[in-house]
Simulated assay, not measured.
Amino acid sequence: MKLSLPSFAKINWSLRVLGKRSDGYHELCTVFQTVSLCDRIDFEVSENLSLTCSDPRIPTTADNLILKAAERLRAAAGISLGARIHLEKRIPSPGGLGGGSSNAAVALIGLSRLWEVDAASILPQLAAEIGADVPFFLYGGTAIGTGRGDVIEPIDDIPSGQMLIVTPDIAIPTAEVFARFRAETLTDTDQNHNLSVCRAEAEKLRPAVSELVNDLEGIVFKAFPEVARVKMALEEHGAVNAVLCGSGASVVGVFDKKETRQTAEKALDSESTWRKFAVSAVSRSEYREGLGL
Rank of each mutant, 00 (worst) to 15 (best):
G147H: 06
E27C: 07
D188W: 11
S14T: 12
A69E: 02
L51H: 12
R261M: 13
P59W: 07
P225E: 13
N12W: 09
F181H: 15
D133E: 11
K10G: 03
K2E: 15
F224P: 10
V209A: 13
A83E: 01
G149C: 10
R288V: 06
L51G: 10
G78F: 06
L51M: 14
D39S: 14
L126P: 02
G78P: 05
V282F: 09
V151K: 12
E217S: 05
M163H: 03
D42E: 15
G82W: 11
L51K: 09
E217K: 05
T187R: 11
A183K: 03
K2S: 13
S210F: 07
S196L: 12
E176R: 15
V279H: 05
F224Y: 15
T273K: 15
E44M: 08
E289S: 14
A76F: 11
E116H: 12
G140T: 04
E217G: 03
A278H: 08
D156P: 06
K20N: 12
R40N: 14
D156E: 15
V254S: 01
W115C: 01
E235G: 13
G141I: 00
S280D: 14
R288M: 15
L216G: 02
A183G: 02
V31D: 00
Q262I: 03
G131E: 04
C53L: 08
G290H: 11
K89Q: 14
E217V: 03
V106G: 04
I170M: 10
N103A: 12
D215F: 11
L138H: 04
T52P: 14
I91N: 05
A119K: 02
A233H: 00
L138A: 08
T185C: 13
V282T: 05
S270T: 11
A281R: 07
I11A: 03
D150A: 03
G246K: 02
L51A: 08
A105Q: 08
D256T: 14
G96Q: 09
Y287G: 00
D42G: 13
A128H: 06
D133R: 09
A9E: 00
F277D: 00
T273F: 13
